[in-house]
Each structure stands twice: as structure tokens, then as C-alpha cells.
Computed example of a mutant assay.
Amino acid sequence: MSGRLVAVVGPSGVGKDSLIDALCGARPWFHRVRRTITRPPGAGERFDSVSAEVFERMRRDGAFCLHWAAHGLRYGLRAEVEARVAGGQDAVANLSRGALPEAALVFPRLLVLNLTASPEVLAERLAGRGREEAEAIRARLGRADLEVPDGPWTAVTIRNDGPLEDTLARAVAALQPERA
């Protein structure tokens, strides 16, 4: 049986990467997907930084099983992720809500963990990471209430305003049935 792709989605600053780190710690068989992004390297998520030109060449050459644009950047999941999941391994990735329809075509067993948090918590977290000016933060907050589109996937909404341990417990419960 093929594995699952667990897509962690939600607005910027909601804690997607923190939850992914915690899930991989609690479920060591999960493959944590490392994204390729047209953003300079920096603190936070570990990703492969490439220029827009290199990204486009990689896309044309079939390096990605899934790619999308958001917030003026390009994001991609390497083709090896599709092979891992098809081979039976579960993987977890930070995805854009807008990429879910395409992801469902690539990953038939797609589980979506939709993280939410209050606007005040999101604003505080975005300001704390220091990557954007106030105008960019306002723009990201303006997209925070976008819904997960309907599709052929299972979606579970999890509030992430409190301790990460509570969010992790709700996410692990959403993974049922899972491997023993």
C-alpha cells in the first residue's frame, strides 16, 4: 500500500514547521519533506534555496513532483517524495492551501492538517520572526482566514494558539489509523 502525504497548511506564522518538527519527533517513520524555495537562506525552516532561474530550470527538467507560487516566491517538492510515498513511506510537508488540488493528483492518500490561530497570535509570530516589513505582515494576515478548498482529501482543522504539545496531540489523533 502506498504511504500518505500529510500536508500541513495554514496562514503564515501559524506554526506549520514547529508542528512538522514535533510530528517527526513523535513519529520517526515520517519523512520530513525538505522544500526547494526561491528565498535566500535564513533562520527557521530548513530548505534548499535556489534562484528563480534555477527553480525554473529544475521545474522544466522534472525535478519536482509538485510546485506552486505564493507570496512572490516559488516552492517545490522534489520528485523523490512521490517515489517515497508510492513505496509506502508516510511523508509530511508544509504546503500552500492553493497547491492542494494538484497535490491530490500526485498523492492519492492526502491528509490535510489545517492549522489556525487567532489574528493576534499570528501577528505576534510574524513580527517575531523578523523576515518581513509591517506591510508584508499585513498582507499575510489578510490571507489568514482563507479556507481549505474542498477536494478528495481528508482535512482536519487544528487550533494552534496554545502549547505545541496540545497541538501535537490533536495532530497525532488525526493520523489514525496509523502504523503501530
Rank of each mutant, 00 (worst) to 15 (best):
S51N: 09
F55E: 05
S49W: 06
G62R: 04
A52Q: 09
V50P: 14
A69H: 10
G88H: 01
R109A: 07
D48L: 12
E80A: 06
S118K: 11
R97K: 02
A43K: 13
R97H: 01
A93N: 05
V92P: 13
R84V: 02
D90G: 10
A79M: 13
R57P: 05
A63G: 09
W68F: 08
L95Y: 00
M58Y: 15
N94G: 04
Q89V: 01
G88A: 04
V81M: 05
G87D: 00
G128S: 05
V54L: 14
G44V: 09
L95I: 03
E124L: 15
R131S: 07
E120M: 08
E124F: 14
G76Y: 06
S49Q: 07
E56N: 08
H67E: 12
V85Y: 00
A91G: 00
G87L: 01
H71V: 09
L100I: 14
H67I: 07
R46F: 10
L77C: 14
R97I: 01
E102Y: 06
G88S: 01
A103D: 07
T116E: 11
R78A: 15
L111E: 02
R60E: 09
G87V: 02
P108K: 04
A79C: 11
L122Q: 11
F55K: 03
L110C: 01
R129Q: 13
E53F: 05
A93L: 01
E82R: 15
L126T: 12
V54K: 12
H67K: 05
Y75S: 03
D90N: 14
A117S: 15
A134T: 11
E45V: 13
S118E: 12
R57I: 00
A83R: 14
G44I: 10
W68M: 06
S96K: 08
L73P: 10
G72P: 04
R129N: 11
P108C: 07
R46S: 15
E82Q: 15
V81E: 01
S96H: 11
G76H: 09
C65H: 03
L113Y: 07
V54F: 08
V121I: 15
N94Y: 01
R129I: 06
S49Y: 03
V54T: 15
V106R: 12
E133L: 09
R109Q: 04
A79P: 11
R125E: 02
V85C: 03
A43Y: 10
V121Y: 09
H71L: 10
A91W: 00
F64M: 05
L66H: 08
A91D: 01
F47E: 08
V121K: 14
A86F: 05
R57F: 04
E132S: 09
E82Y: 08
G130L: 02
D90S: 12
P101I: 04
R125L: 00
A134R: 11
G44H: 10
L126P: 07
L66M: 07
E56A: 15
L66V: 08
L73T: 05
F55T: 03
R129V: 09
